[in-house]
Every structure is written in structure tokens, then in C-alpha cells.
Design a protein around this nucleic acid. Structure first.
Length: 216
DNA sequence: GCGACAG
DNA sequence: ATCTTGTCGC
């Protein structure tokens, strides 16, 4: 990796330099191969997993899990610097190149509009979206209880993402643009990837894969 | 100045 | 992220 900071100040400078490269519009056709990415920790050790699913059937078509050690502390706003190196290593191990990255965290719904999903998208040039369990920045109106309901996530006067109800009566999932996908398309992907549970199937399977990778 | 703060 | 039992509901 060419661009890698050692301090929070340097990391922020990297984000400000790369943020202009984010493309918040749809590129390419509807993806067939969609990937879920996640990292699990045990002290200094970590395991990063990428699981590739067929968007239509949700069947797994490829996966890669890599073990490593933490190289950056968890700092709110700089989360990507902790996970990106291991996730890129896992992506390189894949046989099938995914056409969409579904990240466990935010895209532009970030203080500097450059969260994990933007970072991975820009570095790989692949379409990417963020699907997070909680908000980081922004507020939204209350949304209807039914699956499919959603509301804009607004921060500093701008729409940075959406709160999306993926199942009746569950807490919303926070979706945001990462790279090369517009918000409405990202919402559509998340709803299709979460036919039964609150979180997208991509996220659920990547979560299980990295936890297993931490053991064996 | 004091909290809050993706995972 | 991770530490952690039982419990309510389909």
C-alpha cells in the first residue's frame, strides 16, 4: 500500500486527499457477485473475511479469510485504517472478483464523508456501499414499522445516507454510498440482501467467516 | 468546556 | 470489537 499513515493526523490528511475521488453515482450494470466484508479481533490478532454471494440466489460462490495483527488503534472516524489492510489482503485472495462490496460500517455518512466503504471502494475501484448497525453522524425522522420503509439520514444539512427497515419491527440498518453506487441503489441492494434477517446476508456470513478464521 | 463517538 | 444468562416470541 502506497498511502499509509502512522498517526491520526496523517490518517485524516489521507481521507481529505482521497475523498474527492468518491463517485456517488451508479457505474456498471446490476452486480451478480456481491461481497460481504468483516473483521474479528482477539487482542492484537485479527481475522478479515470476504464472502462472495450470487445476488440472485444468495448462494456463496467464493470466500477468503486472512489472519493478521492490528496496526492501527480504533479511533472513531479513522476506523478504516484499522481494517482496510487486512480486507485488501483478503480481497486479493479471491478467485471471483466481486462487483459490489457491502461493508460493515459507513460510507459517506462520516464526519469527513470518507468512511470505510468509501475507502475500500476508492482503493479497489469497485462499487461499494456501507451498511452499519448504528449511526455515526446524522439524524433521521421516525420511519414506518414495515420492511422497506426508509428515511434520509441528514448531517450538516446534507443527505449522507438512509435509515432502512429491513424487517418489520426491527431497528433500522444505516445505508450510505461508498463508491460508484447511488443511495437509492444501495438501499435496494440492502433490502434484497436481507430477505429474512435484519442484516444483509453478506454481512452475516462475513461475520461468521471472520470469527471462525480467528479460531482455526 | 463536556459528552459522544462506525467496529 | 469484546465481555456475557436468561428470556421473550415466532
Amino acid at each position: 500500500m502506497t498511502e499509509w499513515p502512522a498517526t491520526p493526523a496523517e490518517a485524516i490528511a489521507v481521507q481529505e486527499k482521497l475523498r474527492g475521488l468518491v463517485e456517488p453515482t451508479d457505474a456498471g450494470k446490476t452486480p451478480r457477485y456481491v461481497a460481504g466484508l468483516d473483521v474479528a479481533y482477539d487482542g492484537d490478532r485479527l481475522a478479515a473475511a470476504v464472502v462472495v454471494l450470487d445476488r440472485e440466489t444468495l448462494a456463496e460462490v467464493d470466500r477468503a479469510v486472512v489472519n493478521g495483527v492490528t496496526t492501527f488503534p480504533y479511533v472513531p472516524g479513522l476506523f478504516a485504517f484499522r481494517e482496510v489492510p487486512a480486507l485488501l489482503a483478503a480481497l486479493e485472495q479471491l478467485t471471483i472478483t466481486p462487483e459490489l462490496l457491502v461493508c460493515d460500517g459507513h460510507g459517506i455518512a462520516h464526519p469527513r464523508r470518507f468512511g470505510l466503504a468509501c475507502h475500500l471502494g476508492v482503493l479497489t475501484k469497485l462499487p461499494a456501499i456501507g451498511a452499519a448497525k448504528t449511526t455515526f453522524v446524522g439524524t433521521h425522522r421516525e420511519l414506518a414499522e414495515e420492511r422497506g420503509a426508509w428515511a434520509e439520514l441528514v448531517d450538516g444539512g446534507e443527505v449522507v445516507g438512509a435509515a432502512v427497515r429491513t424487517q418489520d419491527g426491527v431497528k433500522p440498518v444505516y445505508v450510505s454510498v461508498g463508491h460508484r453506487v447511488r443511495l437509492e441503489t444501495a438501499i435496494d441492494h440492502v433490502l434484497r440482501l436481507a430477505p429474512r434477517y435484519r442484516l444483509p446476508e453478506t454481512t452475516r456470513r462475513a461475520d461468521r467467516a471472520c470469527r471462525e478464521g480467528l479460531l482455526g
